[in-house]
């Protein structure tokens, strides 16, 4: 067992890694030596830009795949490519997520379908393909990004909260099932983090959320990335089936 955070020689796939917490995670894991594979959904240009940024900052070449994580066939194709090139996968970060806030009574069928397709189906698809690659080496770490909302709920987030609670259920069951293959599965439950999700919040709501954070400040994506690094590294080699809050002591 190594005694540091080194990810040298490890291959990591991070979904939703062109922005926010996913991008911060990509930079952090690369900084600690991992070969990172990026994923985005909307913009090939942004994906290429991120690859260039990693190359410039860390002098590494990385791959990127543009696909919707809720599309199982597209995910299969991505893992086929990963297998062909790297022959293995050591770390999966299921980060891609979407948010459709609506009050009870105003929730549309499409909101549910879209949110669960990305936040739940996407997690299961990727976890399944990743576990198959990891099981060949009897080693791996899967980190699912849930949310504080999935643990304690929030007004207007019945759909999002449901999907993020599902991520915790998926994590706990997968951890039990995959432990014998030495594949660890953990979740992170971020609180109020400075990403695109908080930008549309009205100032009053922003302040209300901020007031609920005991540490008195919004969290930065890099602080979530640091928690991912810990769970991805061998420092957490005996930790599985856990949900790690990264929320500055937030109470909703």
């Amino acid at each position: 067992m190594t005694s540091n955070f080194s990810l040298e020689g490890k291959v990591a796939f991070i979904t939703g890694s062109t922005r926010g917490m996913g991008w911060a995670t990509a930079r952090t894991l690369t900084r600690f030596g991992a070969t990172v594979i990026l994923n985005g959904i909307n913009s090939q240009d942004l994906l290429e830009q991120r690859k260039e940024e990693l190359k410039k900052e860390f002098n590494v070449e990385c791959d990127g795949f543009l696909f919707d994580v809720g599309d199982m066939d597209a995910a299969q194709n991505c893992y086929n490519q990963i297998f062909k090139k790297h022959k293995k996968l050591d770390i999966l970060v299921n980060n891609a997520g979407t948010l459709d806030d609506n009050l009870v009574g105003m929730i549309r069928k499409e909101d549910i379908r879209h949110t669960f397709s990305t936040n739940v189906n996407g997690v299961i698809y990727n976890l399944q393909f990743a576990a198959r690659l990891m099981s060949r080496n009897k080693s791996g770490s899967i980190i699912n990004i849930s949310s504080l909302v999935g643990r304690v709920g929030n007004e207007g987030q019945v759909v999002y909260g449901g999907s993020k609670a599902a991520v915790i259920g998926i994590t706990l069951s997968a951890a039990r099932e995959l432990a014998s293959k030495n594949i660890r599965v953990n979740a992170i439950a971020p609180g109020f983090i400075n990403t695109d999700f908080v930008k549309p919040l009205p100032p009053a709501i922003f302040q209300q959320r901020l007031n609920s954070v005991k540490m008195g400040r919004i969290g930065e994506p890099e602080e979530v990335a640091n928690a991912v690094l810990f769970l991805a590294s061998d420092l957490s080699s005996y930790i599985t089936g856990q949900v790690l809050g990264v929320d500055g002591g937030m109470i909703m």
Binding site: M72, Q76, Y79, N80, F83, Q128, F129, R132, L133, S135, R136
Partner: peptide, 21 residues
Amino acid sequence: HLALIASIETEFDIMLASDDV
């Protein structure tokens, strides 16, 4: 079954589609 799939994939250097699994 999953051990078998991993073994076949390793032996033949392929990745099987989920339906085939």
